[in-house]
Write a protein that binds this DNA or RNA. Structure first.
Length: 874
RNA sequence: GCCCGCGUGGUGGAAUGGUAGACACAGGAGACUUAAAAUCUCCAGGCCUUGUGCCGUGCCGGUUCGAGUCCGGCCGCGGGUACCA
């Protein structure tokens, strides 16, 4: 009898699928289409086990849909622009292009042996000029539609290397290479007008029925619609001709608690005063230190500077409020100016306590009310002249909670925060003191990057004509490979395009005079914001082909990591709308991903010892022997095991799937990454698990081979096995449909046990084994083909129709009802399915455990949930 | 800081508000074998006074006849935080 030998069967069936063009996506046959897409990888060098998990999930869906009669589009490509390629060139020489294409070749070579049902003929990398040239065409169309514009924005500036840094290159506020404290600097940059669509992008979230609720919530919070009051504060003395300061607030109801007016360090008024106020300029320079991330800004120590200016309180012109510059106010949100209401905002409170500004409550607890989060106990600690109540924690009840208003200008007594906000806005509007406005947290998408390895922005700067888009017939604007006659130098900080001797020089597309190319390249999020559309016609000489897009779009199932919940997915949603506006996608594509699934990470234990200095030393999994849950090195030293850590090259705990494939085969790797853990959750990779998976597949193969060679007539066990076979069809189908791959696999284990122990006749067993092969085929396709052939299946199992259970076989005639007494299980009864409630009650009341619990008395209550459970309350 | 998740035996995990621990790993016992490997069978949350027992799903509280599941508050871990992809 042949043994399970993945090394020989896997290449054999991969060749068979290739030759039959099984996974070539076509529009033929009048069949319905199904587009399944996994987020394409960054070509980092080698695939890791997380990729295997991600693509296996997609492959299960793709193969399952094919077996269900769909024309399936399941493509693969590479998100190939980005910083690591330039960093590699910086660190060890070479060219980002060579590094990237070399990595792609390696990774394709690693992915093919996994037997994914991919249409490789559609593959592309975003760094292919054929791809980014079409992206440049898209950009030009978006520019003419008014979806792109330029404005100033801040970047991380390394004052030593004189270069722009990415956020991840800023470590503890300092440049990663120079170590110099980073500053925030303004540059003129290109922006996509995503904020124009903020309301639409927010409202449309509701319709994304097959997206995870958590992703929708995160996107909604990110876009962040708020209604507030915009109004102006009059300066008591104009500065440089400025008479008022515009403020936006979402809590206008706390206006009487205002103790300062705060300006962002980047506010135009602040900038205009810097020149003639050295102390202010110094303070603002201090505030501009540090990185640009929201986290860095939020966590930075609150810094303020008293400008000496004052403004009149809008409700009481005799009340003068001081104007401060405060580093926690963002120029990007609202108007870049706020009024501080310290009693009801923690940041404002911290600020006022630090600088001795007054703290005045505008509302208080209603006597006797308990607020969720507990009663406010903020009247503790230091009492000072400015903080008479000694407030340490601001009083911020939820907007839905009713509070007691103190001397409210619109006459409120007891009202919720939300009611107060609405009434205040109306009150202010009626008196012409301000205007209720809707604002979004979402900012425009800055796409300029001062880097080489990205898609060049296809515009030209002409002295006469200004900023001019390149002509489409000149596309693609290709990245130069060399710097004139010598290789590009990546070891110097800064953008090589900027210092290239000839690449910038060009003719103005408008007047023909000598002009300069834009040297900024695009954010790599642009590349990944439309690749899904390009896959529908990857070789078209326009960004998309409308007929192909019409047929294949939308993506029916998109699969990727939760880390992309906001940016990538939001940008893609924006791009789909922009592509509709520019005529590159049909109207139906506004939401390009019908269903989204976010999978978890693959983690692995870290094996660690300490060196003489007590610093950790990390050991590769293959150097560690595991015995009884303890790990030992070859020389017998015990290692510390840190479980379930994110795979990281620096911790030596990255599992290379190629070792597993070489040892156990692709099907084992695929089976294991799908088993045990729910797909949305992180999964721990253990070598023992892989071995167990391998043993199971060998067992399945053995069972199939035995059945193939047997000839036993029908027995009395046939009916039971047949019923179990139909049940497993139902269970596995449900599991695959609902991304419950681990649950489906558990059912397949159980069914394998059933089949193995069954003494049914060969005909029924053969049917059961063929069904098992079919149900396993999306997960372990090579083994399934082999079994199918052994058992006499026709053609390729990959193309055979998915088994459908006979509904009559799924019906159970009796059901076991647990009996609870006061919610605790005390016994059970078997009753025919559908037995009337009254009869169940009679049986229950006659049950020993119930009689004992009642002790001659009557039950207080008897709950019968038909087909489920019985609960007796005594 | 803010937004979003997650937390169940030694381990991975199962469980439409209805029998907590399916299925598997590691472990234990046995069968087969000269032996080993492979394979097969069985056991297995904790505790004790071994019972129709008690406890048990990160912690505290609530809703419910009934909570791993719903609600509130904590703690811990993870993701995102707009130039990592």
């Amino acid at each position: 009898m042949s043994r399970y030998d993945p090394a020989s069967i896997e290449p054999k069936w991969q060749k068979a699928w290739d030759e039959a063009l099984t996974f070539r996506a076509t529009r033929e046959g009048g069949k319905p289409k199904y587009y399944v897409l996994e987020m394409f990888p960054y070509p980092s060098g080698r695939i890791h086990i997380g990729h295997v998990r991600n693509y296996t999930m997609g492959d299960v869906i793709a193969r399952y849909k094919k077996q269900n009669g769909f024309n399936v589009l399941h493509p693969m490509g590479f998100d190939a622009f980005g910083m690591p390629a330039e960093n590699a060139a910086m660190a060890s020489g070479g060219h980002p292009k060579d590094w990237t294409y070399g990595n792609i070749e390696t990774m394709v070579g690693q992915m093919k042996p996994l037997g994914f049902g991919l249409d490789w003929s559609r593959m592309f990398a975003t760094c292919d000029p054929e791809y980014y040239g079409q992206q440049q065409a898209l950009f030009i169309d978006m520019l003419s539609e008014g979806l792109v514009y330029r404005k100033n924005a801040v970047v991380n500036w390394d004052p030593v290397d004189m270069t722009v840094l990415a956020n991840e290159q800023v470590i503890d506020g300092c440049g990663w290479r120079s170590g110099a404290p980073v500053e925030r600097k303004e540059l003129t940059q290109w922006f996509f007008k995503i904020s124009d669509m903020a309301g639409e992008l927010l409202d449309a979230i509701e319709g994304l029925d097959d997206w995870p609720a958590k992703v929708k919530l995160m996107q909604a919070n990110w876009i962040g619609r708020s209604r507030g009051l915009q109004f102006s504060w009059e300066l008591t003395a104009p500065v440089h001709g400025v008479e008022t300061v515009e403020v936006y607030t979402t809590r206008p109801d706390t206006l009487l608690g205002a103790s300062f007016l705060g300006l962002s360090p980047d506010h135009p008024l602040v900038k205009s005063m810097e020149g003639d106020n050295p102390a202010l300029a110094a303070a603002v320079a201090e505030m501009r230190k540090g990185g640009t991330t929201e986290e860095a800004l939020e966590k930075a120590e609150k810094l303020g500077f008293d400008t000496g200016l004052t403004v009149r309180h809008p409700l009481d012109p005799s009340w003068e409020v001081p104007v401060w510059v405060a580093n926690f106010i963002l120029m990007d949100y609202g108007t870049g100016a706020i009024f501080g209401s310290p009693a009801h905002d923690q940041r404002d409170l911290d600020f006022c306590r630090k600088y001795g500004l007054p703290i005045k409550a505008t509302f208080d607890v209603i006597e006797g009310e308990v607020y969720h989060g507990g009663a406010p106990d903020y009247r503790t600690d230091e009492q000072t002249a400015t903080n008479p109540r000694g407030m340490v924690t601001a009083f911020i009840p939820p907007k839905s909670a009713k509070v007691k208003w103190l001397n409210h200008f619109a006459g409120l007594d007891e009202a919720t925060g939300q009611e107060a906000v609405d009434i205040t806005i109306d009150w202010m509007e009626a008196r012409g003191l301000g205007k209720g406005v809707e604002k979004f947290r979402l900012r425009d998408w800055g796409l300029s990057r001062q880097r080489y390895w990205g898609c060049p922005i296809p515009v030209v700067h002409c002295d006469a004509c200004g900023v001019v888009p390149e002509k489409k017939e000149n596309l693609p604007i290709q990245l130069p490979y060399d710097e004139g006659d010598k290789p590009i130098d990546f070891s110097t900080p800064g953008n090589p395009l900027d210092r290239h001797p000839t690449w910038r020089d060009c003719a103005c597309p408008s007047c023909g005079q000598p002009a300069k190319r834009e040297t900024d390249t695009m954010d790599t999020f642009v590349d990944s914001s439309w690749y899904f559309a390009r896959f529908t016609a990857p070789r078209a000489d326009t960004p998309t082909d409308m007929a192909d897009a019409e047929y294949w779009m939308n993506v029916d199932q998109y699969i990727g990591g939760i880390e992309h919940a906001i940016l990538h997915l939001l940008y893609s949603r924006f791009f789909a709308r922009a592509m509709i506006r520019t005529g590159h996608l049909p109207e139906k594509c506004a939401e390009p991903f019908n269903a989204l699934f976010t999978q978890g990470m693959v983690t692995h234990a870290i094996f660690q010892t300490k060196n003489a200095e007590g610093r950790p030393v990390y050991h590769y999994p293959e150097d560690v022997d595991l015995r009884d849950g303890r790990g030992f090195l070859k020389d017998g030293t015990e290692v510390e095991i840190i479980p379930s850590a994110k795979m990281s090259k620096s911790k030596n705990n990255v599992v290379d799937p190629m070792n597993i494939i070489a040892t156990y085969g692709a099907d084992t790797a695929r089976w294991f990454v799908l088993s045990d853990s729910p797909p949305e959750r992180d999964v721990e990779w253990t070598a023992a698990g892989a071995e167990a998976a391998s043993k199971h597949l060998a067992r399945v193969h053995r069972i199939a081979a035995e059945i193939a060679g047997a000839d036993v007539p029908e027995t009395k066990e046939d009916a039971a096995l047949l019923k179990e076979t139909h049940k497993v069809m139902h269970d596995v189908t449900l599991g695959v449909e609902s991304f419950g791959f681990n649950a489906a696999i558990a059912k397949l284990y159980a069914f394998t046990n059933t089949l193995s122990k069954s003494r049914a006749g060969t005909q029924t067993k053969r049917f059961a084994a063929k069904t098992l092969a079919q149900l396993m085929s999306p997960m372990t396709p090579h083994l399934a083909e082999e079994m199918w052939q052994l058992l006499g299946g026709e053609g390729l199992i990959a193309e055979a129709p998915w088994p459908k259970p006979d509904e009559a076989m799924l019906v159970e005639d009796t059901v076991t009802l647990p009996i609870q007494v006061n919610g605790k299980r005390r016994g059970e009864i078997d009753v025919p399915k559908g037995m009337p409630k009254e009869e169940v009650e009679k049986l229950v009341l006659a049950h020993d455990a119930v009689l004992k619990a009642l002790d001659g008395g009557q039950p207080k209550k008897l709950i019968v949930v038909p087909g489920r459970i019985v609960n007796v309350v005594v």
